[in-house]
Amino acid sequence: MRFLIIIPAHNEEENLPFTLDSLQQQSFKDFKTVIVNDGSTDKTQEVIRKYTGQDSRFETVDLQKSSHQPGSKVVHAFKNGLKTRNINEFDIICKFDADIILPENYLETIQNAFKNNPEYGLVGGLLYVEKQGAWVYEGNSNRHHVRGPVKAYRKECFIQMGGIRETLGWDNMDSILLENLNWKEIVLPELQVKLIKVKGADYTIRPADYYGRYFYFLGLNRFLAYIAASKEAAKSQSVSFFFSIIKVYEACKTEKLELKISKDEQKAINAQRWKTLRKKWLKI
Rank of each mutant, 00 (worst) to 15 (best):
R2C: 01
R2K: 15
F3G: 00
N11S: 12
E14L: 13
P17L: 04
P17M: 06
T19G: 02
Q24T: 07
Q25V: 00
Q26E: 05
S27P: 00
F28W: 11
I35G: 03
Y51H: 06
T52H: 08
S56D: 11
R57D: 02
F58I: 02
S66Q: 14
S66K: 15
S67W: 11
Q69D: 05
P70A: 11
G71R: 03
G71K: 01
G71L: 06
S72G: 05
K73W: 09
K73S: 14
G81P: 03
L82E: 03
K83I: 07
K83Y: 09
R85I: 06
N88K: 10
E89L: 14
C94T: 06
C94W: 08
L107Y: 03
N112S: 13
A113L: 04
N116G: 12
N116K: 14
N117S: 11
E119D: 11
Y120I: 15
L122Q: 05
V129R: 12
K131Y: 09
V136I: 15
E138L: 15
S141C: 05
R143G: 11
R143Q: 11
G148L: 01
G148A: 15
V150H: 05
A152P: 00
K155D: 08
K155R: 15
C157V: 07
C157L: 06
C157F: 12
F158W: 15
Q160I: 02
Q160D: 13
G163S: 06
G163H: 05
D171G: 04
D171Y: 09
I176M: 12
E179L: 02
I186Y: 08
I186T: 09
V187Y: 08
L191V: 05
K197D: 10
G200Q: 02
D202F: 14
D202M: 08
D209A: 07
Y210K: 03
F217M: 12
L220K: 05
Y226A: 07
Y226G: 04
A234M: 14
K235A: 10
K235R: 13
F243K: 06
I245L: 03
I246E: 04
K247P: 00
V248H: 04
E250P: 04
E250A: 06
A251E: 15
C252S: 09
E255P: 00
L257E: 10
L259A: 07
I261C: 02
K263C: 00
K267Q: 14
A268N: 10
I269Y: 08
R273T: 12
W274M: 13
K279W: 11
W281A: 07
W281S: 07
K283W: 07
